[in-house]
Design a protein around this nucleic acid. Structure first.
Lengths: 137, 137
DNA sequence: CCGACCGTCCTAGGCCGATAGGACAGTCAG
DNA sequence: CTGACTGTCCTATCGGCCTAGGACGGTCGG
């Protein structure tokens, strides 16, 4: 039931730490790495691991609760909510499609060809998953 | 010689306005839309068009000058520097490859397949450039 | 020379988010 | 009950970045 998730926060990234935290949870739920009923690390424990302030973790948890991803039981812990998977899959698709959109838009206006981007995506994917066939998960 | 570039700033984006400004100039140079010797709009004029503060434009111009992209001639204007193209192409590739890397990394950890991303990229590109062949510009 | 434009610089303020540190109540094992 | 844990809340404070407004000197056409 207890989830051990390897959170990695980059304080210098474009997104604020609390949002990085929330997104990593959303993605973990969407990929079924986190499942409804799982208990997340406590605010203070995760704050130490992720090298952020407990309030920052609390903000992420609160945001996710408002989205229906988490369920908070004060005095007990925070848990992945029942309808979380559907919410997170939708959020994941929206976020990543938007990023693809902006990437392509910028690449296009910067003078890159379609093939350049395709090649880079392919190379990055291969580098990450070795030589497995397309159709991961 | 005078460059008319359509700058679009989103004050709510992840990147601060001055950085959006700088990147749009870098990309315009990389795509040869802006060429060495071209004069850029004055700080105050562009500030009005982009709906930002003149100081914000000034900061972007200053950053780009430090990179060797622009050349500032006080009392006259700012111009695209001689070695700008090489610098901007390198910067463009670095920035966009990094974004591809993070996109693929996130998509992978979020449970998406390689085909999902490839399809999205392809669709986005086609939507943008109609049905032209690969190898745009 | 003069005036309009240019980039640069400086001070002050506001906004947003993370940080620091503490206080509170609920839950649960011993 | 006690103590250790849980989430929540509140008040500063700090930092980055944009905003506001003004002042300075250089450049150039008339």
């Amino acid at each position: 039931m207890d989830a051990r998730l390897h959170i990695e926060i980059d304080p210098r990234a474009d997104l604020p730490p609390s949002e990085q935290l929330a997104q990593q949870v959303r993605f973990a739920v969407a990929s079924a790495e986190l499942r409804p009923g799982d208990r997340l690390p406590s605010v203070r424990v995760l704050a130490v691991e992720a090298l952020v302030n407990p309030n920052t973790v609390g903000k992420a948890w609160r945001d996710l609760e408002r989205e229906g991803v988490l369920e908070s039981r004060p005095g007990d812990g925070v848990f992945v909510a029942r309808g979380a998977l559907k919410v997170c899959v939708a959020a994941r698709d929206a976020v990543l499609r938007e990023r693809v959109e902006r990437l392509v838009s910028d690449a296009h206006s910067a003078g890159l060809s379609r093939g350049d981007v395709q090649t880079w995506v392919d190379a990055a994917w291969t580098r990450r998953s070795g030589w497995k066939r397309a159709g991961g998960l």
